[in-house]
Structures are given as C-alpha cells and as structure tokens.
Amino acid sequence: MNMNTGALYTIATKPINGTFFRYIRTKYGDEPLAVIGSLLNGGRYNVAGLFGALYLGFDHETCQAEVSDGIAAGVPFKKGAFTAWDYSVYLSAIVRLDSQSIQNELQISKAQITERGNHWTASGIGEHLHKRGDVDGLVAPSAHHVNGLCLDVFLDRINAPSHVTTGRKLLTWP
C-alpha cells in the first residue's frame, strides 16, 4: 500500500487536551522538555538531524512498554533508571493517526506505522506533517503496548494557545 503523501498536507487536524507522561533516563531527568535524544538519534516519527519531537504516552503502562520493549529487549532495567514526569498539554492542531478514517485517507495501516525496527512510513509521516507547519504533533498507536497511544509533539511548531507544561516529577522507575 503506497501512502498518500499529498493528503498529509490537507488532512484534518483536531485539538487535544489532557495530562500525558514521559519516562526519561534518570541521568537526563531534570530536562523534561529536552528533545536532544530524538534530534540526535531520530525517533519513530522524526528523522535524526531534521527536528526533535517530544514523545509522550497517554498512560504509565504505555511509557513503560515503550522503553522496555524496543532495543532494551525486555531486559530488566537497573533500579531508578528512568524518571517519570507528567505534562499538562493543550494542542490546537494534531493529526490522529490512531483513527481508522485518517489511516484510510492516508492509505496506511496500523501495522505499517507500528512495525518494529522499521520506521520508514512513520518517519515519512512525521517529516511531512512537520514540514506542513500548522500541525502541533500527532497521536499514534503505540508500537509496544496493545491499545496504547502516544502523543508526539513538534515543540518547535507550537504557538499559543497551544502549550506543553511540565507538571510534577512523579517517580523513578523501576
């Protein structure tokens, strides 16, 4: 299935509002808004060197699965390896990639954007939506937690009234 790249520039956006979570390596635990990791190394929805994205989870379980289930291969982390933060978020324009109708419009499947070890389709979507300029980020199904959802924020694209505010440093994990 070939993605309809052109649709990424016209596809409908929605607002989103709520509390989201991030598990940060404790060494960097006092930099909750830093996106240097994704900028330097890339992420599922961003290409290294082009822009950084803030990757948040809708819940703790999704965050834990996201850090545990990829390159860590489920090997137990050392005690306190991660620090969890919560964030208060309002974004006026995000694209819901978890929506079946949006997937249909873009001619993509959930399997394509959650494939392990292959970020080709997902990073292409992120790159085009970021280039579009009027999109604050996207919601996507987690590649690592069944029914989990992630919010990927293009921090360099958001303008008032959109905002991302760090809340509390919640806990260290595990």
Partner: peptide, 8 residues
C-alpha cells in the same frame, strides 16, 4: 542510535 535515543 537506538540506545542513545532510549529515554532521552
């Protein structure tokens, strides 16, 4: 690349 991005 993968390890560097984990939790950062």
């Amino acid at each position: 690349h993968l390890l560097g991005n984990l939790g950062r």
